[in-house]
Simulated scan of single mutants.
Amino acid sequence: MAHIAPLAQPITLKLSGKVIKNRLYRTPLSEYASSYDEDNVENCELADGGAGLICTGNIPIHRDNLENYNNAVLDINNPWDPVEAFRPAVKAAKSRGALFLPQLQFPGRQVPEFLNVNPKSSSSEQLPPCLNKTYGKPSPLTKAEIEDLKRRYVWAAEVLAKAGADGIILHASHGYIMQQFLSPLINKRTDEYGGSLENRARFILEVVNAIKEKLPSDRFVIAAKLNCQDFIEGGTSFAEQCVVIKWLEDAGVDFFDISGGTYASPAWRGNIMKELAERPSQKERGRCVRSTSF
């Protein structure tokens, strides 16, 4: 029997049955550099590199709530055809046999003030200045706004499925909206979305269930990016996150990307920001990748 090198070994996802052809994973990155050129396929180097699983950077699902500029936006109210807009990029990402999971995101309170002075969050806890930015005073999402947000996640997932994606990955870490619901430090709600861990996990579980109702997880991969913990006093703990992961697995999440930290405590960051800024390749491109895994 021929020996298969560890990194070349495939992985079969439990629920969907889809096969990741190897152990090379392009984790979701927020690079603020969304572009695609049908006439310049050399820009599809991620597929050419042979990765078995490719995830995109942040794809905001509400154009008035952006974590920064220059990311692709999937807003239900956009006037253009989103399926046709995303189809070429999906085709390119899958062109060498990779599974492709675009990352859906709503930033919540982590919106720079210059983009939105009154963002929406799980509650009104304001993010203090950090990462060289200031942030607006958030308003708690109303029940109607929570329902609209769930609708937007489902709509975006359906668009990407029609465009050919194998599934989606929900950004539920790094202090964005799903983590803002999960965090006892941020979530001060007194309704069914706040208080106990079960209540704080209600939003993400409802999003997963709503997507699964339209796109069953035995055909469409539902993945989630989660913190192992928030690395900040009073935030979500490792023990709580283990429970949430089990609930999500039972609900139909087929794949987890584990990270950690929030804007207020960017544990994922280390010294990478300075290192990236000093790389000649970044200077030549005229921009600096602002995150390793936002």
Rank of each mutant, 00 (worst) to 15 (best):
A201L: 06
D191R: 05
A210E: 05
L185K: 09
E249S: 15
I245A: 15
V243T: 13
A239G: 01
L215W: 10
V253C: 06
L185R: 07
N187M: 07
P216R: 03
C242E: 15
C242I: 13
N227Y: 07
I222F: 09
V244N: 09
D254I: 04
L197K: 02
R219D: 12
V243S: 01
R189H: 10
R189T: 12
N187L: 10
L197R: 02
L226P: 10
A239H: 04
K212R: 15
D191T: 04
S217P: 08
F255V: 02
W247Q: 15
G234D: 06
V207N: 02
T190R: 15
E213F: 13
F220N: 02
P184N: 03
D230A: 12
L185A: 00
F231P: 05
G252F: 02
I211L: 10
S196E: 04
P216L: 07
A223D: 05
I245C: 14
E192R: 11
E240H: 06
Q241N: 08
D191Q: 09
I222W: 07
D254W: 10
Y193T: 08
K188V: 13
G235L: 03
Q229G: 07
I211C: 08
E213N: 14
E206T: 12
N227T: 07
G194C: 06
K212E: 01
A239Y: 10
S217C: 15
R219L: 10
F256M: 11
G234M: 01
D257S: 03
N187C: 05
N209P: 06
T236E: 08
L197P: 04
G235S: 01
V244W: 04
T236D: 08
N209R: 14
E240R: 02
F231G: 06
T236F: 01
L197Y: 00
N199G: 07
T190V: 15
D254K: 11
S217W: 08
K212T: 07
